[in-house]
Design a protein around this nucleic acid. Structure first.
Lengths: 127, 127
DNA sequence: AAGGGACTACGAAGTGCTTCGTTGACGCGT
DNA sequence: ACGCGTCAACGAAGCACTTCGTAGTCCCTT
């Protein structure tokens, strides 16, 4: 499987819409991202066409209104983006990224607890 | 203080070099990033000139070989980049970003301990 | 005084991203 | 059969990013 290209910022917006919708026509995606406040209908169409060429989404053309669906799961893309950032901005140090993440957006108690659970399960695996 | 623009990927490489060097001439930066394997000397020069216009770095012209230094601290820029990513890819959920970060690059025990300390100090502040 | 090395400045080209208007096809309702 | 709304396709334009060659300047050495 050839590695898919990293989605551009705008493409990521559409991907997020499709991750939620699971599948959708251009019109549905256009509305999901905020309609004309985001961009014209044809802008979304063009983006989805380009994303199809890149392999980021797939297209069902059996209907007049083509139906798009994401090729990659949210988690996989998110992980790719995080890894990129860790390498590019944090010289590979996950701890430093987490540190900045926690100070950039102070998470509430619930989120903190969730992160703690993640740590617990990770350390559990180690032993 | 007008918010500084987000550094581009290439600019980030030079910034990292300057964060380490604290200050440096074009030649020093060029060598720090890998010499011609990265790009020509004039490419680095041009980049630094553009970054100066953008306000990302400052330039001391009192010497023939101008000396550049970063305007923003590493932490501030890193936080900005993380916040961007949390918003763009994780719909604002820090916990999910941390989750992906932990699974993207399995940190060693030392890093895990460091993250745990961070959590402890954060929860301490809450009360 | 001339030559060469190191430096800045400038300009230009190529690429990718983003946006949108226009065109042409399709099919439904009248 | 006609017209209208909906759709995909295309092309073009503008902008940012990146890269590098060339030209000009300065100063040190001979």
């Amino acid at each position: 499987m050839p590695d898919l290209p990293r989605p551009t910022p705008t493409e990521l917006i559409l991907l997020r819409a499709l991750w939620t919708l699971r599948r959708g026509t251009v019109r549905e995606v256009h509305e999901a991202v905020g309609g004309d406040a985001f961009g014209r209908y044809t802008t979304v169409l063009k983006l989805l066409q380009i994303m199809t060429e890149k392999g980021l989404v797939e297209r069902d053309e059996s209907q007049r209104a083509h139906v798009y669906r994401p090729v990659v799961a949210a988690e996989r893309t998110q992980r790719q983006l995080v890894r990129d950032l860790v390498d590019r901005a944090f010289a590979g140090s996950t701890a430093r990224l987490v540190q900045q993440a926690l100070s950039a957006r102070h998470p509430d108690a619930e989120e903190l607890a969730e992160i703690r659970r993640l740590l617990d399960s990770l350390e559990g695996d180690d032993r």
